[in-house]
Nucleic acid binder design. Structure first.
Lengths: 141, 141
DNA sequence: TTGCGTGCAAAGGTTTTGCATGGCA
DNA sequence: TGCCATGCAAAACCTTTGCACGCAA
């Protein structure tokens, strides 16, 4: 368990560096892999999976399961941002867009759920499904 | 698109019938498939996938994505319950318990999301992940 | 030198697709 | 009869695992 993460390899640094440049975006393993492949740099797909898993364990990256048959999404969370409120995610069922939501009112909702219903919501794992602005405007279905 | 769901086949009826008997539980495609297989009845796995997909579209069934590498979970939602305000679902990440949540405050939250963020939340498809009362009390992790 | 990290290939498991057959309306 | 639904097999897809080699400490 704690045998992991002892070494600081070039691949790890490259991946973290890339993640920082796309901070705030949702990216997949494939995105990371293709990025390095297109640059001619070499980072194996397995390594991307394993490093991302480690970064999730370390709290530097958040993993979102958006849909059963879509690849998992990852997002870099700068250490500076860890204290600053929660970030929720909304997934449009129609166009597939993934939206970030920073909102105090959602924090209130979380408090309510905890106090009234005893449920401690995990924003990192929870994805709201529905229709985004544009798709909702186009009429129902 | 709308060519689906025109016929009422035996397989469809059987599946719906079974779903009703396990109402309130979350089951997988494999559960459904194995149930019929063990009874000697014949419902192909593909059919289970396709009927469940249809039932989700029709709003009779909700689909939960519990984990990236676990099969999707499905739950039957009786039509009688559809009008009674919105029902949210909370899934405990630790014990797996599925909690039903009827609450006016959540309706307010939905209004807020629509008005302020332009996102029309779909309670049928959204699952809140986190820790339930008991598991949260046992300490973190 | 030690043993973790890497990367290829292969396996694993879930879900989807192609296509001929079967069954509802 | 027309057309959708079924079901088998195969494919597609994401992710994990086995293993030999490379590299950080």
């Amino acid at each position: 368990m704690n045998s992991k993460g002892k070494y600081k390899t070039k691949q790890r640094e490259d991946i973290v560096e890339y993640l920082k440049t796309v901070s705030g975006e949702h990216i997949t393993v494939s995105d990371v892999y293709e990025y390095f492949r297109s640059k001619g740099a070499s980072v194996g797909q397995t390594t991307v999976y394993r490093q991302l898993e480690r970064l999730v364990d370390e709290g530097l990256v958040t993993k979102y399961i958006v849909d059963a048959n879509s690849p998992a999404c990852f997002e870099y969370m700068p250490p500076e941002s860890h204290g600053k409120g929660n970030c929720f995610h909304c997934k449009c069922e129609k166009c597939g867009k993934l939206i970030h939501l920073h909102c105090e009112e959602m924090d209130e909702m979380m408090s309510h759920m905890k106090l009234e219903h005893g449920f401690v919501l995990d924003p990192k794992r929870t994805v709201f499904f529905g229709l985004c602005d544009e798709c909702a405007g186009e009429g129902k279905q």
